[in-house]
Every structure is written in structure tokens, then in C-alpha cells.
């Protein structure tokens, strides 16, 4: 039996909006620690890992594991019926075939209830290896999104090089090439504009910019993003949530 309450529906609405374009049918695993979703995007190039900790809910109860098999776009559609500041409750009985969502306005004189049909989705779960990343960069989520968007005008791929001088994003295409380099810096006024680099050795990887733009849709969830890279492995891109995270494991393009 799952019963989880959020004081503002916007907390869940914006997370689902950020990942809905990448995903289709997926299982949301609910247990006493919270809600977890792990799913490959349609291209199998990105693995999305979402965790919403139970302490992020104003009320949370899940005494036995519940799996919510649903299409993320259907969930997004139902959530569109909630106002951002509605109180949102998710409820599902054990082995139920529906998820009940209720939206109450704060004055509690309007309450909507939606029943989302659940499905049995046999999903392959991938083992995410513990990885020692050669480089970790913490930077503004908006700056990363803007940098990649600018370079997507030049090419469908971006090369990211991280060394002790900083982090360079570069792209080359038919009309020419371009690059943006950021030095490590600390911005005392607003810390989110700082560029913090932890490096054990330089690393350079290339990625598809179309998929990267899907990933950076999560920039609305967190002011900073953590980018972790190591040679020959998928990058880990993490947007922290008040009590959880949205993590993307992004497969690089490998020189053959």
C-alpha cells in the first residue's frame, strides 16, 4: 500500500515534464525509502535514474514494495490537470492495477481524483557499476544548457575536454567550428555560477547533442549540475533534488 503526499504538485510535475520526452513505459519502484525509477531512453543511449526520497513528501507510507508500471507520458498528462500549488496525493493498494492521484487546492474546497491504469512492464534492469570518475565538474545547470544549445548549431556532436586548466566544450561541422572554455572559478555573489573541477587525470569524451539537450531539460530542477567523466565510460550527469536526484548515464561516441 503506497500513500504519498506532496504539499505542491509542482514538485512532481516538473520532474515528470523533464524526463517525459526521453522515456515511455517504465516501472516506478516504491518502498519505505521512497520512489525510484530506472529506465533506458528510447534510443538506449541514456539511462535515467530518478530517486524521490520519502523525506521529500509531507506524508509517506509504503509498508510493502509497490511497483507502478505506467507510461510516463500518461502520468504527465494526468499531472497537467493539477495546479502547481495543489496538494498532491499518490495512492496505490498492493498488487493494484491503478494509481489514484488526488489534487486538492489549499482551501480544500476543490478536490480532483484521477485513476491511472497500471501495466505489467517487464523491464530489463541494468547494473550501474561503481565508477571512479577521473573528473567531476559542478557548474550552473543553465550555463551548461546554454553552452550545449549554442554548439548544437554547429554539429550534432560535442567534445568535452576536462583538464586542470578547466573544461572545454567544442563542436565542428560543415559551417565551421566553435568552442567554449570555462576556467575553474568561485563566484562569491551567487555560488551557482562557480565552476568547480575535481580532477585525477585529464579526460575527453564526445556526446550526441540531441540527447544532451533532452538531458539538460532537467535544468529547471536544480540550479547546479554535476558532470562526471572518465575515459571510455558513460558520463554521469546529476541534478540534485531536495531529497533525491535525477541522474543520467550518457553513453559516449567512441573513436573506432
Amino acid at each position: 500500500m503506497l500513500e504519498a503526499k506532496l504539499d505542491a504538485a509542482s514538485q512532481l510535475k516538473k520532474i515528470v515534464e523533464a524526463i517525459r520526452d526521453m522515456l515511455g513505459e517504465c516501472n516506478i519502484e516504491c518502498n519505505e525509502t521512497g520512489l525510484a525509477l530506472q529506465s533506458l531512453d528510447k534510443s538506449h543511449i541514456v539511462l535515467v535514474s530518478l530517486l524521490l526520497g520519502s523525506d521529500g513528501f509531507s506524508e509517506y507510507r509504503c509498508d510493502r514494495g509497490v511497483t507502478l508500471g505506467l507510461n510516463i507520458n500518461s502520468l504527465a498528462t494526468v499531472l497537467r490537470c493539477a495546479n502547481n500549488d495543489d496538494i498532491l496525493t499518490l495512492r496505490s493498494e498492493d498488487r493494484a492495477n491503478e494509481l489514484i492521484l488526488t489534487f486538492e487546492d489549499s482551501k480544500a474546497d476543490r478536490i480532483s481524483e484521477f485513476n491511472l491504469r497500471l501495466m505489467d512492464i517487464d523491464q530489463e534492469y541494468l547494473a550501474i557499476p561503481e565508477t571512479e570518475y577521473a573528473a567531476t565538474v559542478v557548474m550552473s545547470a543553465a550555463v551548461l544548457q546554454r553552452t550545449l544549445r549554442d554548439l548544437s548549431a554547429l554539429s550534432e556532436a560535442v567534445t568535452i575536454e576536462i583538464d586542470k586548466e578547466g573544461i572545454r566544450f567544442s563542436a565542428e561541422g560543415d559551417l565551421g567550428k566553435g568552442s567554449t572554455h570555462f576556467k575553474p572559478c568561485v563566484d562569491m555573489e551567487n555560488a551557482e555560477n562557480s565552476i568547480n573541477i575535481t580532477l585525477s587525470e585529464p579526460v575527453s569524451l564526445s556526446f550526441n547533442l540531441q540527447y544532451f539537450s533532452n538531458i539538460t531539460k532537467a535544468s529547471s530542477l536544480s540550479s547546479t549540475v554535476t558532470l562526471q567523466m572518465t575515459a571510455g565510460m558513460p558520463a554521469q550527469i546529476e541534478y540534485k533534488l531536495p531529497s533525491g536526484h535525477v541522474r543520467y548515464y550518457f553513453a559516449p561516441k567512441i573513436e573506432d
Binding site: I45, L47, L126, A157, S206, A251
Partner: peptide, 14 residues
Amino acid sequence: FAMQKSIESFFGQK
């Protein structure tokens, strides 16, 4: 010429 790899080629199945 850089080849796009899939995630499965890096992460095994559980």
C-alpha cells in the same frame, strides 16, 4: 569517425 555506443555495451544486465 566516432561511433555512438549504447548504454548496454557498458552496463551489464542485472
